[in-house]
Computed example of a mutant assay.
Amino acid sequence: MARTKSNTTNGASKEVMLRQPAEMKYAEELEYLASIDKGTKPFSWRLSPQIVRTFVLGSTPSQKLDRQIEQKWYGDSAIAERAIVTLASDRGLLLIGDPGTGKSWLAELLAAAISGNSTYVVQGTAGTTEDQIKYSWNVAMVIAAGQSRDSLIPSPIMTAMHSGAMGRFEELTRCTSDVQDALISILSEKYISIPELKTDNVAFAQPGFNVIATANSRDRGVNELSSALKRRFNFVHMPVVTNKKQEKEIILFRTKELMNRHGFEVDVPPTLLDVLLQTFADLRETSAAASSDDQRLESALSTAEQIGVLEDAILHSRYFGATNLEAGALAKSLVGTLVRRQPEDISVMNQFWHAVVEKRSQEQKGEWEAFLEGGKQAMGLF
């Protein structure tokens, strides 16, 4: 995690993080919730399941809390509840869905609320090894004194086992099958064997340990999970957000958080936000009607990508344009973000711009006119 030193007004220095994990960002809120939590807590959980739900989905007037708890994850409450119940069981939790559906964010929030630490994370890639799931060795210490518990380097998953905490595994299906299967004994037996040691050669999980994994549904067929591993997970499917009101709330919430890092407030004109939402809705409709991959954008057209488009446009307007977000900058950001393949994506976007955006510009005028021209200028650069 990137860190810098920042000077305070009295001359002392303090550590500043580029991005705080959820348990640090919401530390005061978590402390308050723990102080008023009267519910039964499974194992070593810091909060009861009901209060974990409140932390993730926000408080309601019926709870009569002394302070309001803001909603942090936007989605069906049944999804959050099933995830929480799964983590209190012996089965792991697998959040599966399209890119940008909030899988990683929900996993982080759950780990923060339950364990107070969301940083026991393994990032799955084609290069992830079994050592990164279990343990490795400090070579210098092994040469000097031989293999022992002191020379063992635990993985984030093993550390979570020792702590009775939640371990996270991002993009599980990006790993090869033999690496995935290293999780089977961890999830079923709740221990890791260390055959290199003659004594003290088993690392047992403490009560409260479990695994929250995520998988991209677009990666199906890349490295399918074995049936044995599937049996050890409860699958929770994360649907793509299609409700415009809900999507608007997510975009504003996340964009505000991102802009706070830059030290300025976000003021997104409602008309421009509507233009962004409508354009993505039109792009999704066009993509669904396409008969081949060459006729649709490579982009998943997710909510996360909308957030990225808006963030880029706000920063560009702030640093190189007007003081306020402009439609032309939004269009240029959208084209620059979504066009990845050349010439396929350029062709698809160009057809969409003339068939859909130009029509909306003629019918609705206003911001759509500047949006139309901004997109044409951006496509002219490719």
Rank of each mutant, 00 (worst) to 15 (best):
R19Q: 13
Y26H: 15
T214R: 05
L57E: 01
P99S: 11
L106M: 13
E31W: 01
D294Y: 08
N243S: 12
L276K: 11
V52Y: 00
S136V: 09
L47R: 03
E326N: 06
A205M: 10
V309G: 11
M17I: 09
T60R: 15
V275I: 13
A313M: 06
N117H: 08
Q351W: 01
T199N: 12
R261Y: 08
P49Q: 08
G11L: 04
V122H: 04
I114P: 04
N243E: 15
G39M: 09
Y120Q: 12
R174W: 00
R254W: 03
L225R: 07
G328P: 04
A83Y: 00
L57T: 00
S291F: 05
I157A: 07
L110K: 02
R174Y: 01
D90L: 07
W73T: 09
V52C: 09
K14M: 12
Q132I: 00
V240E: 12
Q342G: 10
D90F: 05
E70Y: 06
Q377G: 02
L187V: 09
R82E: 00
E344K: 14
V85H: 02
R149G: 01
P156M: 06
T159R: 15
L273T: 07
S347F: 08
A78M: 00
T128C: 00
L301M: 11
S333H: 08
N216V: 09
T255Q: 09
A304L: 10
T303P: 10
Y26K: 07
S299A: 15
T242G: 13
G167D: 06
I186V: 15
S188E: 15
S317F: 01
L273K: 07
S6T: 14
G375I: 05
K72H: 12
D274N: 14
S59N: 08
D98Q: 13
E189A: 11
E108Q: 14
F55M: 01
G374S: 09
V52I: 15
D66R: 11
Q50Y: 04
A34S: 13
D37F: 01
Q50S: 14
F169I: 03
Q20F: 10
R82Y: 00
S347C: 04
K41F: 01
V16P: 02
D131K: 11
L310F: 09
D37M: 02
L297W: 06
S13V: 14
R168P: 01
L93D: 02
A322C: 02
S188I: 02
V335P: 12
H354A: 10
D267G: 05
A304W: 07
G116R: 07
W137C: 03
G124Y: 00
N324T: 14
